[in-house]
């Protein structure tokens, strides 16, 4: 075995933290049937990726291995495994909880951080650009959609909520730079 698990690696507080997500405690019900990974479209193209392994490691309290695994970010949240699990393990819901624990510990991928920043800056994860302003006009739509893009007060509301939730601090974004 290449990386044997040492009992000293296990952190019981990790499972306690995971359990905050309702239903996530069900990862203890997994009996290794592999129904989740067998149907997984990601495992289909990246055989090393295995959601069962990540969830089992989580149940064992292997905090560092799980939170630092790049595989944590491979799941497309297609829900096929969660639908098929015979034990009702909330595979995807738990994966999302694991990601949020990682983020709280400062692990986030630059591309995701950028999308979060777009929402803080413009109210849209994918904001309008020049090319699409033109496409909208060609289609006889308003050049800007009637969303936060046309409504500065609405954008202020979005920014206010982001701040109130502490999301700007979580992502390490300075709202002062918006002014």
């Amino acid at each position: 075995m290449k990386h044997p698990i040492k009992t000293s690696e296990s952190d019981p507080t990790f499972f306690e933290e995971i359990k905050e997500e309702t239903g996530a405690e069900k990862i203890l019900m997994c009996f290794n049937c592999k129904g989740c990974s067998t149907g997984c479209p990601v495992t289909d193209v990246v055989p090393q990726y295995n959601i069962k392994k990540l969830l089992r490691m989580s149940a064992m309290g292997l905090r560092d291995r799980v939170l630092n695994s790049e595989h944590l970010w491979y799941c497309t949240t297609c829900f096929r495994c969660q639908e098929r699990c015979p034990e009702g393990v909330k595979t995807v819901d738990t994966m999302l909880k694991l990601r949020s624990i990682a983020v709280k510990n400062g692990v986030m991928l630059p591309a995701h951080k950028k999308i979060a920043e777009y929402v803080m800056r413009t109210g849209h994860g994918v904001p309008i650009d020049e090319q699409n302003r033109k496409k909208r006009k060609e289609l006889e739509l308003d050049e800007l959609p009637g969303t936060v893009h046309s409504c500065p007060e609405a954008l202020e509301e979005v920014r206010h909520l982001i701040k109130a939730c502490g999301f700007d601090r979580l992502v390490g974004f300075d709202q002062q730079s918006l002014a």
Binding site: T77, H112, I115, A116, V119, G123, H124, G125, V126, G146, T147, V148, S150, C151, E153, A154, L155, E157, V158
Partner: peptide
């Protein structure tokens, strides 16, 4: 009017 990103579930 004034709707924002849903916000994106993935992120």
């Amino acid at each position: 009017e004034g709707a924002s990103c849903c916000p994106a579930p993935g992120v």
